[in-house]
């Protein structure tokens, strides 16, 4: 599972640096900061929906290689908060993944 998350973050990494305006990391001077002084502030990378970037109007269930990055090793569908997919595309994506599972293009669960 851990190695499944890692590539996702790597993928969104290039878009990251341009997103948050605060350049230097130390003590991130956010307005809401003072209450949590001492704790490390994370600068979260902005994740972008991959399907929105591609401007796709339809997610094809037949293309397993497109859907594969959105499932875990064990076969679970990755949640939106991990992949950054927008609500609309996540909705289409789940349908596509489930269809692909039915015709054995994607696994329901990992085999032993």
């Amino acid at each position: 599972m851990a190695d499944e998350r890692a590539p996702q973050q790597h993928n969104s990494a290039p878009s990251g640096p341009s997103g948050p305006s605060s350049g230097p990391r130390p003590q991130g001077g956010r307005p809401g900061g003072p209450a949590k002084r001492g704790k490390r502030n994370f600068v979260r990378k902005k994740k972008v929906c991959r399907f929105c970037v591609d401007k796709s109007d339809y997610i094809d269930y037949k293309k397993a290689e497109i859907l594969a990055p959105f499932i875990q090793d064990r076969g679970k569908i990755l949640p939106r908060r991990m992949t950054g997919t927008c609500a609309r595309h996540q909705r289409w994506l789940t349908v596509a993944i489930k269809r692909a599972q039915n015709i054995a293009l994607l696994p329901f669960a990992a085999e032993l």
């Binding site: 397993a64 599972q101 054995a104 293009l105 994607l106 696994p107 329901f108 669960a109 085999e111």
Partner: peptide, 11 residues
Amino acid sequence: MAYRVQKLREG
């Protein structure tokens, strides 16, 4: 195939 069907791995 992504999983075994009728004990077969290919189709």
